[in-house]
Design a protein around this nucleic acid. Structure first.
Lengths: 365, 365
DNA sequence: TTGTAGGCGTTATCAA
DNA sequence: TTGATAACGCCTACAA
């Protein structure tokens, strides 16, 4: 990649500290941005190789169409000069950008970040760049971002979620690019889907509670989106198993551990006889778990808590949080693979994949 | 924004569940991407408004240079048709893209995400898009990403960190665009800096321990980058206060709670007399705290733990983790503001800002 | 205040 | 297998 074999030893503590000893000095104020030398253009490469620009273009994009010797020479020069295609010119002429937009509901969520990472692992080696945006669980923000996609003209779009508002669904379809939805299992995805049934997740929670012998159960979570689906499944499962849902506590907006704490407090003050609580995400569950322990309750004897998401911390907090969830990174990788096929105009076997829900049994239930 | 006043009521649980009842059905396989109608071009807007394309361009970019009546008419048509400038054409012609690249060491880190969010809050309303990349604390990955910037040609670049490798620093300077470094306080930032002294942070930790009367102290953290600086300051502070550093445990690679657990175990088996531990980040500190509690130790009496980062969870885990840190979102906002000024070729008062380190005293020390 | 001419760098198309 | 030509959509420079 580089033109010299220059050493590139990572700095060790001694280097770092030697440089940084002077930390508190203010840096010189002349640090104006220096104009870089203009990067080489395709014509320059063509000139050096003694071919026409289009041949250089082909050598990079369809190497099999260029004679062996020329191709080698061209690639060597590209390497040496550090030539890189101007993506704007390329996108303008070919109508193909190498940007894939990924929208997460909340960038602070480990689950969503893992999925995006997984997707990036697949796409980036193929020359695509992920651009990450955050919808903050806000339908208004979602609408704004989708509108801004018209300007961005990405090669594909992925969401850690499904789009519920019909107007936004139409807008996305109109982009004419691959659209990936995830994290749920709607009957009519816009285009592609790697998802799972949140309803089944809720049902699994209820079945787990029933299997462990709890009868008086409760729900804490959002009343819209995926929270609503998990609640719905939980209701069904509870009904079938003869469980008694003593309370459904609504937490709206982006939830935090504090919400989980507060919700558990509310719940206990309403009905102290509750035996088991299903929290629609791990952040709420973690808060509830901490609150229960703060009150000196023993888990799972005094109260059982079940989360959703397989978040790292769930395993670390004593006595360990039982959670329902999926392998988010794997979901992201699969999504990336489908998107890739679609961008290459290959035909995936199926535009829809389902990932498995699993229950990780720990000490809290 | 939209051409109709169509209702856009967010779905409630009933809508959601009604749609999703059919979840387990496989979606129809015909979901091919439909070609969208081509978006309008500037010539189309110009035709509708009875002006030339350049006037439309000006009405959007330099409205004051277009006569009131024409401007209003043009903007009305733009609104109605949903016209959006093709960013590639614009970038190609003007040499200015609206993408700002932001690199975080680890996308899972709450601190870095907050900073990026803060930065986005400032830049996005001005029409810039943040593109997020992850360096994974790897110098090799950092080098690769910096090279890929040549192709991406963003309007500016921001890092949640400073660039230590001279070759990368040169490559960044050569881009000729605003570069923002953060999270440290080098004497010679590449261009702009919103930082703080990690050495001071380490010193603050030592001083805090001294003030609380602990004498036998230890360090857990990375030996490179910021970890090294925090250790360096911690050593200095400990030396000045007459503390005894009984151990310095190295955790390399991306750290996790499990590393913190293990490191505390190692530490205690080496020297059980240690009174206080400074962990170079909150993830390690959280792991150490949990491990201490798992072993039945009382905090801070049996052992005091101090973290770095002001991460949310630090406040939630009993007895509360004392941490040194900064306001990350604020750092991000300031960085965004400087970047914005620089992109507009305004002259900021200073290319360098320092944010304050604070110590949040909780129960763990 | 508005418009004309031309080019940013690349690749599609067609021809050789 | 290679090249000539033109065009992608917009904006800078200059002219009116």
């Amino acid at each position: 990649m580089t033109d010299t074999g220059a050493e590139k030893r990572p700095p060790t503590i001694d280097d770092v500290v030697r440089v940084a000893k002077a930390e508190p000095e203010l840096p010189a104020e002349d640090g104006a941005v220096r104009e870089g030398t203009a990067p080489p253009r395709i014509v320059e490469i063509a000139r050096l190789a003694g071919v026409s620009p289009i041949t250089v273009s082909r050598a990079l994009r369809q190497p099999e169409k260029v004679a062996e010797a020329k191709r080698r020479k061209i690639l060597e020069i590209v390497e040496r000069t550090g030539y890189a295609t101007n993506p704007h010119a390329r996108a303008l002429r070919s109508g193909q950008s190498n940007i894939v937009a990924a929208f997460v509901s909340n960038i602070q969520s480990q689950q969503f970040c893992l999925a995006v990472q997984g997707c990036g692992e697949v796409l980036e080696p193929q020359g695509y760049q992920l651009m990450i945006g955050q919808t903050s669980y806000s339908y208004a923000k979602e609408t704004t971002m989708i509108q801004s996609l018209r300007e961005m003209r990405p090669a594909a779009v992925m969401f850690t979620g499904v789009i519920e508002i019909e107007e936004n669904r139409r807008a996305l379809r109109a982009l004419g690019i691959p659209i990936m939805e995830t994290w749920a299992y709607p009957r009519d995805p816009i285009d592609m889907l790697v998802g799972f049934s949140n309803i089944d997740g809720g049902r699994l929670a209820a079945e787990h509670f029933a299997g462990r012998g709890y009868r008086r159960v409760a729900f804490i979570g959002r009343r819209s989106g995926r929270g609503a689906l998990r609640l719905s499944g939980f209701r069904e499962g509870a009904h079938e198993a003869g469980l008694d849902i003593v309370a459904e506590l609504s937490v709206d907006g982006v939830s935090s551990m504090v919400d989980g704490r507060r919700a558990l407090g509310d719940l206990l003050s309403r009905d102290a006889s509750v035996q088991a609580v299903f929290c629609a995400n791990d952040l709420l569950a973690t808060g509830a778990l901490l609150e229960a322990r703060r009150r000196g309750m023993r888990l799972p004897d005094d109260i059982a808590i079940l989360g959703f998401g397989h978040q790292d911390i769930a395993d670390e907090l004593p006595p360990g949080l039982t959670t329902v969830g999926i392998d988010s990174r794997d979901l992201g990788r699969r999504a990336g693979q489908l998107i890739l096929q679609r961008m290459r105009s290959e035909t995936p076997d199926s535009l829809t994949q389902v990932v498995d829900l699993t229950l990780a049994q720990r000490g809290s239930s």
